[in-house]
Simulated assay, not measured.
Amino acid sequence: MLGKSLHRYNWLALILLTAGVALVQYPSGDSPAKTTAHHDASDNVMGLAAVLAACFSSGFAGVYFEKILKTSKVSLWIRNIQLAFFSVFGSLFVCWLYDWQAINDDGFLRGYNGIIWIVVLLQAYGGLVIALVVKYADNILKGFAVSLSIILSSFTSWLVLGDLTITTTFAVGATIVIFATFLYGHEPKKNPVAHDA
């Protein structure tokens, strides 16, 4: 769609990134009180199909968004306003469907405090940063940035909150993700062109 080709190092980096993120998010063996449930093969196939559909639709949306941002004459800020404008209707519908009585009784901003406003502002800032990354870099780099943010937030959770146990699987996955990030940025050396004198 974008008329772009990837080098074999880039493809290897993407495969390693997928494997690394899967390892980082793999549940640890010491999770409390696992409930055992019987799943047949159709559940596994349905789950795999749902994950693949989500991956392909998300990937297509990301590439299409990048194409729109890079080929359109409309500014990045107007595009963000357009996206936000259409998402408002869905959000208002869900609020009306589930929380109409509470909103009617206590107002739309019931329960909002300083922490909630910080989260709202961080989410808005994150959306603007992602749009800038997609416009001036590409959608693949956004995927690497999100993967690194998963590792950093997990590490911060372990260091600050103490609610994560660093396992060997997590360490190996984090190492693979970091290596894949550097590999994707690697530019192979080009053979010098011989000039005739």
Rank of each mutant, 00 (worst) to 15 (best):
V24P: 04
V146H: 11
V63E: 09
S42N: 06
A41Y: 07
N113C: 00
Y112E: 13
Y26A: 12
F85K: 05
L48M: 12
A137E: 12
K67I: 00
L76P: 00
Y98C: 08
I81R: 01
L141C: 02
V63R: 14
Q25D: 01
I116L: 09
I116F: 09
S72P: 13
G143M: 03
D106T: 08
A37F: 02
P32Q: 09
C95N: 09
G107F: 07
D106H: 15
D99W: 07
Q82T: 03
A124N: 06
V24E: 08
L97C: 01
L122E: 06
A50C: 11
G20Q: 02
G114N: 13
A137N: 11
C95V: 09
Q101S: 14
K135M: 05
S31A: 10
Y98F: 15
P27H: 05
G62N: 14
K142L: 15
V24S: 03
T36K: 13
V74G: 06
G59D: 00
G111C: 03
A49F: 14
V74R: 14
S31Y: 11
Y64Q: 10
P32E: 13
D43M: 10
A131G: 10
R110E: 15
Q82M: 14
D40Q: 13
E66V: 02
W100F: 14
L128Y: 15
Y112N: 11
P27T: 00
F89M: 07
I103L: 08
G126A: 15
A137K: 15
T36P: 00
N139D: 01
L48H: 08
K142D: 10
Y136A: 07
M46A: 15
D30K: 12
L52T: 07
A19N: 06
S42Q: 08
G47A: 14
G127N: 09
V74C: 05
T35L: 08
A53T: 08
A41G: 05
D40G: 11
V88I: 07
K70N: 06
H39F: 15
G62T: 04
A54G: 06
A137P: 02
I68N: 03
S57V: 09
V45I: 11
Y26I: 00
A137M: 14
D30T: 07
N44C: 00
H38D: 10
L23P: 02
L97D: 01
A50W: 03
L109K: 07
N113A: 07
H39L: 15
S58R: 12
T18A: 15
H39T: 06
D105T: 12
S147L: 04
F56W: 10
K142Y: 05
G107W: 04
V94H: 02
A54E: 02
V88A: 12
W77S: 13
A84Y: 06
V51R: 10
G107S: 05
G29Y: 11
V63Q: 11
L48A: 15
A84E: 03
Q25W: 00
G47E: 05
D30M: 07
A102G: 13
G47R: 12
M46I: 14
V45L: 12
G62K: 06
L23I: 00
F60G: 12
L92F: 15
F89Y: 10
C95W: 07
L23G: 03
V133N: 10
T18K: 09
A41W: 09
